[in-house]
């Protein structure tokens, strides 16, 4: 009697960052910006920008310096409130809720919409305290054990745990640049945000540290909605599923990253990404 061998099933092929296997149904966007204009004094920095950010995608904002991409990113957790001359018009919703509404607690908002900056900016405290600070002030943990767990979980998610677990009491500023940036990401994650905004998170890092952050972004995607501003178009192409191109305060084009980098609809996008701009 001959036995029929069961067909071997090939292991799943790893998906490219641009593929969206889990996007099967049309879901409501995590954040929705409608007709956002920003003025710094008399100068209009952003003109009627409307965009949606989904929680299962990385959205990249690209464009030349001064195009308004960072200004827009800062609108998403009201960081522009800290600039006295800045005025924001339009509506931004987080899960359908107006983030500029008087009832919105801005501290709470920034816990839900975390931010990672260009230059790693750990507090001049221990590694442990850097991560524990947020959960503590927001009262997210009831006991020291729970806080320890949150710190460990956040550092693990940020891919830093193995490198720092034996020196949690050392200063955060003593870490390397790439480690500091991952510490800042751990700090942002610690308060269990829904959205993470990253403003050129790798521009001060070497290529290896950059690759680690990009890998981290890839891992965090799906758990958090991620929006990233980057000057590095290759980085936008590598990490994002949606790309928005800003120019002179306008949103010129917004679409699937693979389309934006192979066949953009707008001439201005084409000129910018192929290096023909200005």
């Amino acid at each position: 009697m001959t036995t029929t061998k069961a067909p071997t099933i090939a292991p799943p092929v790893p998906l490219h960052a641009d593929e969206e296997p889990h996007v099967t149904t049309k879901r409501a966007p995590k954040m929705r910006a409608k007709d956002i204009s920003v003025f710094y004094g008399d100068k209009q920095a952003l003109k009627d920008v409307s965009i949606e950010i989904h929680d299962d995608r990385v959205t990249a904002f690209i464009g030349p310096s001064g195009c308004g991409k960072s200004t827009f990113l800062r609108c998403l957790n009201r960081m522009n409130d800290t600039i006295p001359s800045a005025r924001v018009a339009g509506r931004i919703e987080l899960d359908g809720e107006d983030i500029n509404a008087p009832a919105m607690d801005v501290v709470q908002l920034r816990a839900r919409v975390g931010m990672v900056f260009q230059k790693p900016n750990p507090f001049p405290k221990s590694i442990y305290e850097n991560v524990a600070y947020g959960p503590r002030i927001h009262g997210l943990t009831a006991s020291r054990t729970e806080l320890d767990e949150t710190v460990e979980k956040s550092l693990k998610r940020a891919g830093l745990w193995d490198e720092v677990k034996d020196r949690l009491n050392e200063s955060g500023t003593a870490l390397s640049g790439g480690q500091q940036q991952r510490l800042c990401i751990a700090r942002a994650i610690a308060v269990d945000p829904e959205v993470i905004l990253m403003d050129e998170p790798c521009s001060a890092l070497d290529p290896i540290a950059t690759a680690r952050i990009e890998e981290l972004i890839h891992e965090l995607r799906g758990r958090y909605a991620i929006a990233i501003v980057t000057h590095n178009m290759q980085q936008a192409a590598r990490v994002s599923q949606r790309t928005a191109f800003f120019h002179l305060g306008e949103l010129v084009e917004y679409g699937k990253t693979s389309d934006m980098f192979t066949n953009p609809r707008e001439q201005r996008t084409q000129d910018y990404i192929t290096g023909r701009y200005g």
């Binding site: 066949n263 084409q270 290096g275």
Partner: peptide, 9 residues
């Protein structure tokens, strides 16, 4: 050169 869009095509 990491060509993009029309250049890559």
């Amino acid at each position: 050169r990491a060509p993009m869009a029309g250049d890559l095509r």
